[in-house]
Amino acid sequence: MTRTAGAPPLTLLYVPADRPDRVAKALASAADAVLVDLEDAVAPSRKGEARENAGRILARPAGPGADVGRPAGAIQVRINHRSTPWHADDVALLGSLPAGIGVRVPKVESAGEVRELAEALPGRALHLLVESALGVERAFELAAASPQVASIGLGEADLRSDLRVSDDAGLTWARSRVVVAARAAGLAPPVMSAYTNVRDLDGLAASCLVGRRLGFSGRTAIHPGQLGTIRAAFLPSAAEVAAAREVLDRVRGAAAEGVGAVALEDGTFLDVAMVERARWVVGLGEG
């Protein structure tokens, strides 16, 4: 079951564009968004074939009853980096696709390249991936580089290599940096990078909970079998939604009675930040 229109995506499924059979399955899957990959998942010798597949499949009209099976806004195409020989053709392909299809931009390090891509693809949503130490240092600058930037996140495999770290502890600061940059730029919370061991669902769940505590909201997946675990980890529990509704009910009741200070049953006094958080939790739970 996918999220309702306008709700933040919790599950985003990568699929290699050189496998049209898998693309079709991904588009019909329960993922909130499908990430059609022209980059890391595709061998250099198959880049042209992958691009042709993506163009043929995604050029179909998107909407109720269409062959694509989902709205264009729930589809992104990850292109190759500007330093590669495939980048220009990838950008040309995006320019020919329905306007709602977003572009996932790897290895971003400068605001200039973001603005350049925005000019080449006017009006198209840009989803930035930070995959180096320099990109992390410039996270807010990147997030705020263009009104077309719709999200910013980490590409953790390349970032681990660049930082020379061997486990998640070495990524904690970079993860928090991107969460703060997204919020400061007025963007939605970032989604986590993919968990590469597709059989380790317990490890995936534990990792998702760590990310959720840091401020992430959702995660990319590389296998459909990961979607349910990701969704369960990032959706608020029934108890959390009930507690959030209590906060909102108490605030509404106090406003109606002309009372300024409001306290919950456990003695916790409410402030504006808690109310905003409660609205977010309820919205997430109902989406």
Rank of each mutant, 00 (worst) to 15 (best):
G123C: 02
P20D: 01
R164H: 12
V149H: 10
L214N: 06
D162P: 00
A92K: 15
V42R: 10
L284W: 11
A242P: 07
R104M: 08
G55H: 10
A30F: 01
S96T: 12
Q226Y: 05
V42P: 12
A43D: 13
H81N: 15
G6C: 09
A181D: 11
G69A: 01
Q148Y: 12
H81P: 12
P106R: 12
L97Q: 06
Y195G: 04
D32A: 03
G186M: 04
D21K: 10
E119I: 04
A26S: 03
R70Q: 08
R70W: 02
L187C: 01
V179G: 05
V198E: 10
G102E: 13
L129A: 05
D167W: 00
S132E: 01
A88M: 10
E137T: 14
G218L: 03
E276Q: 15
T268R: 14
L264D: 08
F140W: 15
H127C: 01
G253M: 08
P8T: 08
A194E: 05
A238T: 14
L235D: 13
G155E: 03
H81M: 07
P20H: 05
P106L: 06
L142G: 07
V114E: 09
V282R: 00
R175Y: 11
S217W: 14
G215C: 05
M274L: 12
F216H: 14
R199T: 15
A255V: 15
D158V: 04
A88D: 15
D40I: 05
A92F: 08
G112C: 08
A59D: 13
A66F: 00
D89A: 15
D32S: 07
L248D: 11
Y14K: 10
